[in-house]
Amino acid sequence: MYQVKDKEKIFIYTGPDGSGRKTLAKMVATAFDMETVLSYTTRPPRHYETNGEDYHFVTEETFQKMHQQQEFLESVDIDGYRYGIREQDIVGAFKDHKLVYLTLNPEGADKLKQMYGKNVVRIFIYADRETVIKRQQERQDDEVEIRRHMSHYDEIMAHKPNCEHAFENYDLPQVSYQISELIESYLDRDFIVSEY
């Protein structure tokens, strides 16, 4: 298994679907030299998702083959779809970056925490049930999909205390600023304060 170096950090965004985890993760990453590692999934892309940008969308057959070749660090089944993270993608991201981020379900977040210990920081992003439903409707998820997500809402919310940090996403710019400050606190940078 890859040995994460001291200054290398893996930030994992988790929380209910529709909480804005991905949007926040992308916003925060722009303030830092942060590389994302995408999951592989067998589920079809939603109308606003792009292959290679949101996920690696693969067939069941491809996923199975990768699984047999033990390419995945962790893989989970959710509602009949499979998701997996490849270790070589994490290793690749660390080649040019000290900071890596992923958006994972709680199970995946915990598995990576067990593997990489203190180098993994789990950030739980949430919003109340009504807000989450409204956001999913705004991005035009179909009703079946929304019901499927909401059936996991309480179970995912119960995971909040396991994470190192939690943010209620009520205002994107505000919360992305708070998360940026948090990430800053993990970086032991030597700032030179200059007087103007």
Rank of each mutant, 00 (worst) to 15 (best):
Q3P: 12
K5C: 10
I10H: 03
I12C: 08
Y13P: 09
Y13R: 08
Y13A: 02
Y13S: 08
Y13K: 02
T14N: 08
G15E: 05
P16T: 10
D17V: 15
D17M: 15
S19M: 03
S19F: 07
R21Y: 02
K22R: 07
A25N: 02
A29Y: 04
A31N: 12
M34K: 01
M34H: 03
T36N: 08
L38A: 01
S39P: 04
S39C: 15
T41A: 03
T42I: 01
P44K: 06
P45K: 04
H47A: 04
H47K: 07
E49C: 04
T50P: 03
E53I: 13
E53H: 11
D54M: 09
D54L: 09
T59D: 05
E60N: 12
E61M: 03
T62P: 00
K65Y: 10
H67A: 13
H67L: 15
Q69Y: 13
Q70K: 14
Q70V: 01
E71K: 13
E71W: 01
S75P: 01
D77L: 12
Y81I: 08
Y81D: 09
R82Y: 14
Y83M: 03
Y83C: 04
G84A: 12
I85N: 06
E87N: 05
Q88G: 01
I90S: 02
V91H: 13
G92D: 15
A93K: 00
H97N: 14
L99V: 15
L102P: 03
L104S: 04
N105L: 06
N105P: 12
P106E: 13
K111R: 14
K111H: 14
L112I: 05
Q114P: 00
Q114W: 01
Y116N: 05
K118V: 06
F124R: 00
I125Y: 06
D128W: 13
R129W: 14
R129Y: 15
I133P: 00
I133S: 05
K134A: 15
K134T: 15
Q137H: 11
D141C: 14
D141T: 11
D141N: 14
D141Y: 12
D141E: 15
E143F: 08
V144L: 10
R147W: 07
R148N: 14
H149A: 13
H149E: 07
M150Q: 09
E155H: 10
I156C: 03
A158G: 07
A158W: 08
P161E: 04
E164L: 03
E164P: 05
H165S: 01
A166I: 03
A166R: 03
F167S: 00
N169K: 09
N169D: 06
Y170F: 13
D171V: 00
S176H: 11
Y177H: 11
Y177L: 09
S180A: 15
S180Q: 11
L182E: 02
I183P: 00
E184S: 07
E184I: 01
S185I: 02
Y186H: 09
Y186M: 01
Y186P: 02
D188H: 11
R189A: 12
R189Q: 09
F191V: 07
F191R: 02
I192F: 11
